[in-house]
Design a protein around this nucleic acid. Structure first.
Lengths: 332, 332
DNA sequence: CACTTCTTTGGAATCGATTCCAAACATTAC
DNA sequence: GTAATGTTTGGAATCGATTCCAAAGAAGTG
């Protein structure tokens, strides 16, 4: 049973293809009787307009693509949920694909924008070099979210990572931290900004960071444990650690606890993101809340503007407010 | 600067569109000189074949779609990673979309298969009724993974949920459990199968379940806490709880610990999935390992068979072996 | 009733890449 | 040199939905 086409529907309904198409697209210039005949034929043939033919003719797909390195991330999933909901309101379907940090895979997915498989692209954690992202964002309908290639040139939505890291580090110091350490990543630009914020807060307090630990690989629970173990072998032992994510902070807390030290009694630990992991951790984590869902929504709005207003795109990034959430992993 | 077409390339290269297309598709019947001229023109015009035109002509997209209720799940993300890697080996792109448990959204995404936006569909956690899934799987290139609508009729890949739940419940009993409880979900078919396995193991030991708690909503850390709190108010207090997922088990463990009871001393807790959450939990969870990545790979293989061998599809599901992983949340 | 105006319709042209067929050209064989 | 074979090429037809234009039909006006 081959696929029915608009021709088949027209024949069955006894009208022309033009009329069928008009019914399909809700044109007002169709009589009730034609509308009924066409509707009956469509039902009878179980007809669906072929997407590729429609897309070819209309020169758009009403689909967007969202890319990130991986999917199992509280922030990423929430950002994409926000983007997806916003997109749905405007009639767009949001498709998601993980790049696995593989440049080739990422390039292939970006090509889906270049070859018109989708109308727009939301980039979370690019693998390609910053310059490439910028160049791409310059000429295509691309918006970055959270991880933003460069200050002014790029299009994107994020929090002020530097300020957020500054705020939470200051909290660590205010609550007694004197020997400060950081566990972070330099793979992501946001990671580098958080490092800056941390350093700035430490310096402003007249201190200097005791230990800075970074990974260039995964940034997950295991990484948190490994880096924390390394940290516990160093002297002086820190009394406060800022971690670049809740999940890493959870690994860090776990390692400290397993070593027989107390959090926050011996070492205070701060996370980042205010994800569910912050609540699952014992003790619950002091962290920075990122408005992930709203960031996703805004990212789509920005993308929509880029897609529909050819030249009217708003260059530069949009910052959303973050929030310090104080829980039990830092001192009262 | 409008998009270049195959016509433009032909004109620039001084050849016909046929030749351009042949170069594009690596046909051997092209002279070296034409090949070079076309390649130069393509580079010069920065030409990319338009996906919709190609798809229309070729009647396939080399894209598949993977659906699940949500993305922030250790099992789902791992299954889709396996499917995505397997698909890439065969030249397919895997796109992922969350349905958010919304029937309308799910229907719209399934329509992408019906209208030829993608060539195949992998379904993780359907929202539509089982019968609808079956009917769909009957006539379209659809494969289910983990959650499988019905025993023999459907196409899919999963573990034997009933047996797995049986195995881990038996372990709870062997290690001293006498007053058994279960925290599960009946939304997913796998949840119902796990309930069966639990009941069977309890019955086989000559016991009967003391408490069965189910949620019809989310099945996450918070749900685990809430249901565990309810459980702690019941009498007799259980001495062993089987949870339908690691994340829920983590919530359960947390609630028990917060109530001043010890895991596993007072109450043993078992999870399901062997996700990272099992390791993050304190104590680490005894659980069932699902070979999620392999399940994803196999799901794609099955889908590929359905897509390419029109009538040669293997009806019925494929079972992969699970494994009991004993850790510290159950007694020695 | 003739004429204008409005609604509805049919059908050809179009979107851009692929593919098939026939023709042009080159090569080898006799 | 001609025939037979093989290689390369051009270009029209095709995929299926949309849209524009002209025309048919209906309704209203004087």
């Amino acid at each position: 049973m081959a696929r029915a086409t608009v021709q088949d529907v027209a024949r069955t309904a006894g009208v022309s293809v033009g009329t069928v198409s008009r019914v399909l697209n809700g044109s007002p210039a169709v009589s009730e009787s034609s509308k009924a005949k066409v509707a009956a034929a469509i039902r009878h043939l179980n007809y669906r307009p072929l997407a590729s033919a429609r897309d070819l003719r209309r020169d758009r797909t009403m689909r967007i693509l969202a890319l990130a390195k991986n999917l199992y991330s509280p922030v990423i999933s929430e950002v994409f949920r926000g983007a997806g909901d916003a997109a749905a309101l405007s009639g767009y379907v949001t498709l998601i694909a993980p790049t696995a940090g593989d440049m080739e895979r990422e390039q292939q997915l970006v090509d889906m924008l270049r070859n018109g498989s989708v109308d727009g692209l939301i980039m979370f954690s690019p693998t390609m070099p910053d310059d490439d992202v910028e160049e791409m964002a310059e000429q295509l309908s691309v918006v970055q979210v959270c991880e933003i290639a460069d200050a002014e040139a790029a299009f994107g939505v994020s929090i002020d990572d530097r300020q957020a890291a500054f705020d939470i580090t200051r909290h660590l110091i205010r609550t007694g931290g004197r020997r400060l350490a950081m566990i972070g990543t330099r793979v992501a630009r946001s990671g580098r900004l958080r490092e800056e914020g941390f350093r700035r807060a430490v310096a402003e307090a007249g201190l200097s960071p005791d230990h800075m630990l970074f990974t260039d690989g995964d940034f997950d629970f295991h990484a948190g444990r490994h880096l924390a173990r390394e940290l516990l072998g160093m002297r002086p032992l820190p009394d406060a650690v800022f971690c670049g994510s809740d999940t890493v902070a959870a690994g860090c807390v776990r390692e400290i606890s397993d070593a027989g030290l107390r959090v926050p009694g011996d070492i205070a630990v701060a996370g980042f993101d205010d994800s569910i992991q912050a609540e699952m951790c014992v003790p619950e984590l002091t962290t920075i809340r990122q408005p992930a869902y709203a960031m996703g929504q805004l990212a789509f709005e920005a993308l929509l503007a880029r897609m529909t207003e050819p030249e009217g795109y708003r260059r530069g990034r949009t910052f959303l407010p973050h929030e310090l959430v104080v829980r039990d992993s830092t001192n009262g």
